[in-house]
């Protein structure tokens, strides 16, 4: 194994993606809408196809706008079907994204004469090739991958929006009724979060592919949720876990397959797998909400008799 500047850039791009995803992702997990990232990443297909058919180019901006518009549409339609059709949010999400995905496939196939849009390329992304597409940033000596600039800006944008409305996001996530009585419009912030999610997913999607986005959005946040009960540590931990997954994932991608005699494999896929490994370790070992801790406490409580032990779910009550 040998490590080049290229590998550093890949890990940096992955880390920027991890931070950009962890911020809205933590709120998605808290709100019970973990699968929104998956839904949006599939649903944007018609947006990409339409943008391409209308402008005839694969320039990033029209594609980004088309996908972001469809991403927001997905969130709005999901909310409508859930509210007016009285279906659970999972079902309404599934209805919207599968329908949009089917529409996208048809658009791509019908326009295939003019479209050079490979659906598999859209789905898999190409994290490995991001260092080849560089731009020069003033103040930095070396050319920087475009994906890194895009993802770092998205992360910064998410951070700014969340910091500006932190109080509102926190209260609408934990107690929407309370927020409404305080005059904070929970619906508005729901849609704002959805817009953040859509923009993040689409930007990351365009830069590094959807595989990694779906995992980085949810898994680090869920892992951090096992480690802390407070919101700010949750956000920080989720970002750090995401960055760790990016590094570990790339390391695994270039070391594991050679052990079995294969060439290296998809870094994006391995980063997603790394988030899974970190989750597994945390799930077993976490100090308070981990499997071992729960098991130990269960024994302890049985030995001490009912009512004497600390109940993990009602500590504050």
């Amino acid at each position: 194994m040998s490590w080049f500047a290229l590998d550093t850039w890949i890990v940096l791009v992955g880390s920027a993606c991890a931070v950009a995803c962890a911020l809205p992702g933590s709120f998605l997990v808290l709100r019970g809408m973990s699968l929104m990232g998956d839904a949006i990443s599939h649903a944007v297909l018609p947006g990409l196809a339409l943008a391409f058919l209308l402008t005839g180019s694969r320039a990033s901006l029209p594609m980004f706008l088309g996908a972001a518009a469809i991403g927001i549409l997905t969130a709005v339609l999901t909310q409508w079907i859930r509210r007016w059709g009285r279906l659970e949010s999972g079902a309404s999400m599934g209805i919207v994204f599968t329908t949009l995905f089917a529409l996208g496939l048809i658009l791509i196939v019908r326009g295939a004469d003019r479209v050079d849009l490979d659906p598999s390329c859209v789905l898999y992304g190409a994290l490995e090739f991001t260092p080849l597409d560089t731009v020069s940033v003033p103040g930095v000596g070396v050319p920087v991958p475009r994906a890194l600039v895009v993802l770092a800006s998205v992360a910064l944008f998410n951070l700014l929006v969340l910091a500006a409305f932190f109080k509102e996001f926190r209260i609408t996530s934990f107690d929407p009724e309370m927020a409404d009585t305080l005059g904070i419009r929970s619906g508005l912030f729901h849609y704002l979060l959805m817009i953040l999610t859509a923009v993040t997913v689409v930007a990351a999607f365009e830069a590094v592919g959807s595989v990694i986005v779906i995992a980085l959005l949810i898994v680090p946040a869920a892992t951090a949720h096992l480690l802390t009960d407070r919101l700010v540590p949750l956000l920080v931990l989720a970002s750090l876990l995401g960055i760790a997954s990016a590094g570990l994932g790339h390391l695994l991608a270039i070391t594991v397959p050679p052990l079995f005699g294969f060439a290296d494999t998809s870094t994006a896929g391995m980063m997603a797998a790394a988030t899974g490994l970190l989750f597994l370790a945390t799930w077993i070992l976490a100090p308070r909400h981990g499997l071992l801790a729960r098991r130990y406490r269960g024994r302890h409580r049985e030995a001490a008799g009912p009512g004497s032990a600390e109940d993990p779910f009602h500590r504050g009550a």
Binding site: V29, S34, L35, G37, D38, Y124, V211, I212, I214, A215, L216, L217, I218, V219, A222, A253, T265, S266, A268, G269, M270, M271, A272, A273, T275, G276, F279
Partner: peptide
């Protein structure tokens, strides 16, 4: 479901 979906999709693509 999100964890299983995201991770297994990644593992699948890697494999």
């Amino acid at each position: 479901m999100g964890i299983v979906l995201g991770v297994s999709f990644g593992v699948g693509i890697a494999v």
